[in-house]
Write a protein that binds this DNA or RNA. Structure first.
Lengths: 213, 213
DNA sequence: ATTGTTGGATAGTACAGCTAGCCAATGACT
DNA sequence: AGTCATTGGCTAGCTGTACTATCCAACAAT
């Protein structure tokens, strides 16, 4: 398969494929001559993965590069690869350790995680992200204690256990399993987000009416 | 309160405040002379709202402007204001009606919504967003039927009913209530997303171990 | 021999979200 | 009254991201 066919099959324009090659998101094809290279099924799959992370997961190119590097590194455990994806998904929230309100939010986040008995790396940026959410909620005068977030945490845990990680079949190649897991993380996240907004719209329509106050 | 104090209180730099004023995100202060304007508590609250939508909700400036315009328009019903926020949160997914796979994903999305009995506007962009997620899932070989997404939908609905819209107290000014509802939409979305990733990390740590396959 | 494609490289584009600089009017302080 | 910092309003510039566009020489196909 030459680059033009790869482009046709994947729907990604040739210049963009070249860009991904340059950026190291897509491995080079097999060079058959100075001006020919052969691409295969693996490249098609990788392109699908890139587009999923980009369009659905909204990951920046640099983050996608890191995730793919982890996927390709066969010495990494499943847990570490997934951790890389989680890290990439966590928007860079810079903590302000000298801010009293921030420290409080952060310890509320840590407390919630501890109470749930979750095993989370002490350095995980997700902790800071949770703290930022708690801080924002409290600044806006909304319930922001661990107690208020508990139902969300429990619902999240149940979905993850029963429908995401639990259903990963390990009877494939490592690469496929890892890809499925990583992309599943991202796409299920958006699925839940979209469904939540739909649930809100529906509830809002019933409570407030199509035309009303 | 002058602009420098507004900046100090809110933590937003003066040039950025000027930028928000130019962009119409922040109403002008009350002019007391040609070179003085007075800002009040309302501006501080509006800035908090902007930063929440921007940093936590990741809404682009243009979308924030539309949301705030809806919040300020007293003739709009709660439902319409919330709809504006939902519309702003839905990333522009352009549907490809001439693509067979797309049409199938879209009708699967519509079917799920219908089966759940949800009241969703036929034109809602969220329908397309759901279709895109379904399409991506199926392209990646993952379960993407309405059935597979049902548990997510039900969990989302329960959270929305019991902890978001249900708890809105209507004993405030319309502006406050609307602001709370809109920002709650956004921030609870992130809260759920963060907690889901944490649940994944924890589950992954237990299943795959800190060091393992 | 002609025509068209390819890989590789460089440069340019479009948008977003600020950030910087300037200016004259003004207010606060001495 | 004189000095000095601040303000609003303006225009321009900056940084980062994700592409596009163009060019070129080497090759392959006919």
């Amino acid at each position: 398969m030459r680059i033009s066919q790869l482009s046709a099959v994947s729907g990604v324009p040739i210049p963009t494929i070249k860009y991904y090659l340059r950026e190291g998101l897509l491995p080079a094809g097999e060079q058959t001559s100075a001006t020919r290279a052969e691409y295969g099924e693996r490249h098609v799959r990788r392109l699908r993965l890139i587009r999923a992370l980009l369009e659905v997961g909204r990951l920046p190119i640099a983050a996608i590069r890191k995730v793919l590097a982890a996927v390709d590194d066969e010495t990494l455990s499943m847990h570490l690869v997934l951790g890389t994806a989680h890290y990439a998904l966590a928007p860079a929230v810079e903590p302000h350790p000298d801010d009293e309100a921030w420290r409080e939010a952060r310890s509320e986040a840590d407390r919630l995680i501890a109470e749930l008995g979750w095993r989370i790396d002490a350095q995980a940026p997700t902790r800071d992200e949770l703290a930022q959410v708690i801080l924002t909620l409290s600044r806006l005068g909304m319930p922001a204690t661990g107690e208020a977030l508990r139902p969300y945490a429990e619902a999240a845990m149940e979905l993850v256990m029963e429908h995401e990680i639990g259903t990963i079949s390990l009877d494939r190649t490592r690469e496929e399993a890892v890809e499925t897991l990583v992309v599943g993380t991202v796409v299920h996240g958006r699925a839940l987000d979209v469904l939540r907004r739909l649930a809100q719209e529906s509830t809002s329509a019933q409570l407030f009416g199509i035309s009303g106050t």
